[in-house]
Amino acid sequence: MRRRRGSGAPSSSPAEADLAAAEAILGHAFNDRALLAQALSHSGLSQGRDQGLASNERLEFVGDRVLGLVVAEWLIERFPAEREGALGRRLAHLVAEPSLASVAGRLGLGALLAVAPGDDRAGVRDRPAVLADAVEAMIGALYLDAGLEAARGFIRRALAPEMVVDAPRDPKSALQEWTLGRGLGLPEYRVVATSGPSHAPTFRVRASCRDTWAEAEAGVKQAAEKAAAASLLALLEKGDG
């Protein structure tokens, strides 16, 4: 992964080159570049100084709402014959941490983030939760600087590879249907480990059914549960084949 400064020491704000790179990714030259700089500032930079007001958390709050609206609008347009349940599964898939982290990975967003030195050494740039939050923050900044049309254009471009033909199923629901259908009872979920700083923890969750189990990690416990459920279902289906 590219490092922005020859010294290897992250700054308290994004570099000019990183702001320019982010503008190219978004397809917009910002009128208020402070918004973009804030979107690229990880929350660890401002811990204990301003209660996180200078980090990207507030923009993430805005971007999450804009993302949900634009994706819902897009799905209604793209799948006019689908019922609410299928549309809801599609929306959940598109706005979930794995999809947004995948977007960030394709765009090289992790390398543009301004992070605290300790977080940088801990590999925070590669954490799916951090990357997903950064995508939402950039959407929030784009919306506030250029409006809904600009945000809509970026969201559709960025998420196009994640748009699938078949409505995705929630992994936990699919696993539950499989186990109950075979008289195995409900699967169980347990957090077996937590790592990372308190403001950006990583959860390792174990999903189990009888004597079979699988584990997965994510920055949000629910995302870790879903990933573990998907892995466990794959194991059970393989053993049942």
Rank of each mutant, 00 (worst) to 15 (best):
E237H: 08
A114H: 02
Q222P: 00
Q38P: 00
Q176T: 15
F30L: 06
V130F: 03
R157N: 13
R89T: 08
V124F: 08
A20W: 00
P10E: 12
F203M: 08
R49H: 09
E188G: 13
Y189L: 13
A134E: 07
V103D: 04
L233E: 08
A114S: 10
L107C: 12
A218L: 09
R49A: 03
V62Q: 09
A111W: 09
R5S: 10
L112I: 12
A227C: 07
R65G: 08
D32N: 13
D18N: 04
A146V: 05
A200D: 02
W74Q: 05
E162G: 00
A150P: 11
G8V: 05
A134S: 12
V191Y: 09
L36T: 00
E84T: 14
K238S: 14
D119I: 00
E57W: 11
I25R: 06
N31R: 15
A214T: 03
E84S: 14
V220P: 00
R169M: 13
S46T: 12
Q51S: 15
L184Y: 04
R127M: 11
F79R: 07
A216W: 05
Y143G: 05
A146F: 06
G52R: 00
A21L: 00
K226N: 10
D166T: 13
L175P: 01
P80H: 06
L26E: 03
G185Y: 03
K221G: 01
A228K: 05
L159H: 01
G68P: 03
V191F: 10
P117T: 02
P197D: 09
G63I: 05
N56Y: 04
R210G: 10
A141Q: 05
R33P: 03
S208D: 07
V103W: 01
E237L: 12
S46V: 02
R4H: 03
L186Q: 14
A132T: 08
L26I: 00
W74S: 04
S231Q: 14
S43E: 10
A137N: 07
